[in-house]
Simulated scan of single mutants.
Amino acid sequence: MAKETHKSCRAGRSVVIATSLWLMAGTGFAATASTSTEALPAGHPQQAQSSKKATQKPAPLIDINSASKAQLKTLYGVGDAEADRIIAARPFKTKTDLVTTAGLPTGIYVANKHKIIAIQKTKSSPKG
């Protein structure tokens, strides 16, 4: 009976060791997959990519009162029909008028509100 206990302990120990190795391998994988660029050594390619992203300027805002159909179609969820509705409903006082006046779905507006602006044309005073 002592030999049977010894064999079962050895088998149990093997299972524990195999499970531990499996968990350590999984943890190591997760750690390497989620490493930040701060932990990378200087000159690492991923560190260079992240610094380029940080120095890039954001894309210029699209003026919904003067943008072409092609420019409007670069916005998320805006196709030919939506671009035509936007152009037909001009001028807009605010960018939220896209929903109330042009009938653009709220979800499309929310996805694009940080990319658009509604610039008002200034009236020139008559000279004379």
Rank of each mutant, 00 (worst) to 15 (best):
M1A: 09
A2R: 08
K3H: 09
K7D: 11
S8V: 04
S8N: 09
S8E: 12
C9H: 13
R10F: 04
A11R: 11
A11S: 06
G12H: 06
S14N: 13
V15I: 14
V16L: 15
T19Y: 11
T19N: 15
W22Y: 07
L23T: 09
L23H: 13
L23F: 14
A30Q: 09
T32V: 07
T32L: 07
T32Q: 06
T32A: 05
A33N: 08
S34K: 06
T37V: 11
Q46V: 02
Q46L: 13
Q47V: 09
A48Y: 09
T55S: 14
Q56E: 15
Q56H: 12
L61K: 14
L61R: 11
D63T: 09
I64V: 13
N65G: 13
N65P: 08
S68D: 15
A70L: 10
T74H: 04
T74R: 10
G79V: 07
D80Q: 12
R85T: 08
I86W: 01
A89W: 04
K93S: 14
K93H: 09
T94R: 15
L98Y: 01
L98N: 03
V99Y: 03
T101F: 00
L104W: 00
P105M: 03
G107L: 00
Y109S: 06
Y109C: 05
Y109W: 08
N112D: 07
K115G: 02
I119R: 06
K121G: 07
K121A: 08
T122W: 04
S124C: 11
S124G: 14
P126N: 10
